[in-house]
């Protein structure tokens, strides 16, 4: 499914944001901040850039997406449901006992569209490197691998092992998207453990680096298309984002990394997103 109309894509992203609020509100916990910051990125991927088939999640020629920042799974779940991987009503089971929508993505629960379990930060890019290596060197495959990382996440040493390996093996079927919202649980990334300058570091690791406004869906689509064309090196897209994007009181506030809104704030968020109050409790 390839939607090119920007207003339709933005409408999907608005619904995804609403779903993130509704899911975390009814779960009573979760990670809205980092989910909202990747809502536009995931919308651009799943409704335009990716080759995938929601009716056949294990299609061999699919593009693989590894959500390395697993705590942002509400955004991924919402996008997968919107794309038709599973019924939308299931979203409201997030974090509940027996749900396929675990607090962090769990492949063993059988939720269609989840490639592998993540949540312990720093591990997803290595997985993506292995998959891309198999695709490029062994299968001559035409699919790409996308890894979505947080900016705080790249404080993990394993990520740099993976950056090094991807450069070493010239994995041009690998695109890493770094959600650069500048915040982590303890505060500003540059204060907790400064990771900058990211582009210079990645260039030194033999990556091609792109920087994009992570909330402009057309720009994200364009940069992914451009990145796909580059041969001979892995590609990193540094998406400049706002943690909590779209909800006034959550934007750029580290405290909204890992807590759910209460009813009053959830209703305020619903209104800000242009949905009626009643939508918060529909189908629950």
């Amino acid at each position: 499914m390839k939607i090119t109309d920007t207003s339709r894509l933005e409408e999907i992203a608005r619904r995804v944001r609403f779903d993130i609020i509704k899911m975390t509100y009814h779960a009573g916990s979760g990670h809205p901040g980092g989910s909202l910051s990747i809502a536009d990125i995931l919308t651009a991927l799943y409704f335009n850039a990716l080759n995938h088939d929601p009716k056949n999640p294990e299609w061999n020629d699919r593009d693989r997406v590894i959500l390395s920042k697993g705590h942002a799974c509400p955004a991924l779940y919402a996008v997968l449901a919107e794309a038709g991987y599973f019924p939308r009503e299931e979203l409201w089971t997030l974090r509940k006992f027996g749900s396929r929508l675990q607090g962090h993505p769990a492949v063993d629960k059988g939720l269609p569209g989840i490639e592998i379990s993540t949540g312990s930060l720093g591990q997803g890019l290595s997985i993506a490197v292995g998959t891309a290596l198999a695709g490029k060197k062994l299968d001559d495959a035409n699919w790409n691998v996308y890894a979505i990382l947080g900016d705080g996440e790249i404080e993990e040493g394993q990520v740099w092992e993976a950056f090094m390996a991807a450069g070493h093996y010239h994995l041009d079927n690998l695109i890493a998207i770094i959600d650069n919202n500048d915040l982590q649980i303890d505060g500003f990334v540059c204060d907790v453990m400064n990771i900058h300058p990211i582009p210079d570091k990645l260039k030194a690791f033999n990556w091609q680096v792109f920087v994009v406004d992570g909330h402009s869906i057309p720009e994200i689509i364009d940069v992914v298309e451009e990145a796909k064309k580059v041969r001979g090196t892995p590609k990193a897209i540094i998406a400049k984002t706002v943690k909590g994007k779209g909800i006034s009181y959550m934007e750029n506030v580290a405290d909204w990394h890992g807590k759910a809104p209460n009813r009053e704030l959830a209703l305020k968020a619903v209104a800000e997103l242009g949905f009626p109050e009643s939508a918060l409790d529909n189908d629950i």
Partner: peptide, 27 residues
């Protein structure tokens, strides 16, 4: 052609092995 050195980087090597399985390999 089927051997890949991860270098002295065991954490990445373990992840790469799992990633290989997403492409149907036994690593």
């Amino acid at each position: 052609e089927r051997f890949f050195n991860a270098g002295i980087a065991e954490q990445n090597a373990a992840g790469m092995a799992a990633g290989m399985s997403l492409a149907g390999k036994i690593a």
